[in-house]
């Protein structure tokens, strides 16, 4: 059972690794790359805490083998904001709107929001709720999260950077 050599492009950084094929992407991100912003909540693809973007699409990184991410572009929560003090508009909206309590679901929620807004810069409330239904939260009742997404959608459209 040989290790497999893979290249992961994470947040613009290139990592060359030899990994056991049975290791999931979230395990490699957290254990090998020390990118612990991606959380483990269930390991069965049900809670969304481990959401990352692969080539722009949201996936549950606990349900993906690391080898399957070879040569793909991976975006994790650590790559969303650029500077030390700078927050991505989505993160800023989550902070301002009170969308964060315990924070454990937050990285996954933020990335699911990014995926939604990349696809649909002007979502309805129903579309937001559908888009976030793969991310469980036990603290907020989702209400403030939905408000944050609505607020940031407006802001990003106004700023013309809905990309």
């Amino acid at each position: 059972m040989d290790k497999v050599c893979i290249t992961l492009n994470v947040n613009g950084d290139r990592y060359e690794l030899a990994v056991d094929p049975w290791r999931t992407l979230v395990e490699v991100l957290r254990d090998d790359l020390n990118l612990t912003g991606t959380k483990i909540g269930c390991q069965t693809g049900d809670c969304g805490a481990c959401t990352v973007l692969i080539d722009g699409k949201s996936v549950a990184s606990c349900m993906m083998l690391a080898v399957a991410a070879d040569n793909k572009n991976i975006a994790t929560i650590e790559g969303l904001s650029t500077g030390q003090d700078e927050l991505h508009p989505i993160q800023e909206a989550f902070v301002e709107q009170g969308a964060i309590q315990c924070g454990y679901c937050t990285p996954g929620m933020v990335l699911s929001t990014k995926y939604l807004l990349d696809q649909n810069p002007d979502p309805t409330e129903t579309e937001i709720r559908q888009a976030l239904s793969g991310n469980l939260c036990r603290c907020t009742g989702y209400h403030r999260i939905v408000k944050a997404v609505e607020a940031v959608a407006v802001k990003m459209r106004a700023d013309g950077k809905g990309e």
Partner: peptide, 9 residues
């Protein structure tokens, strides 16, 4: 089927 993330995989 499943969730957004599962449908993407």
């Amino acid at each position: 089927t499943g969730t957004v993330q599962i449908r993407n995989m």
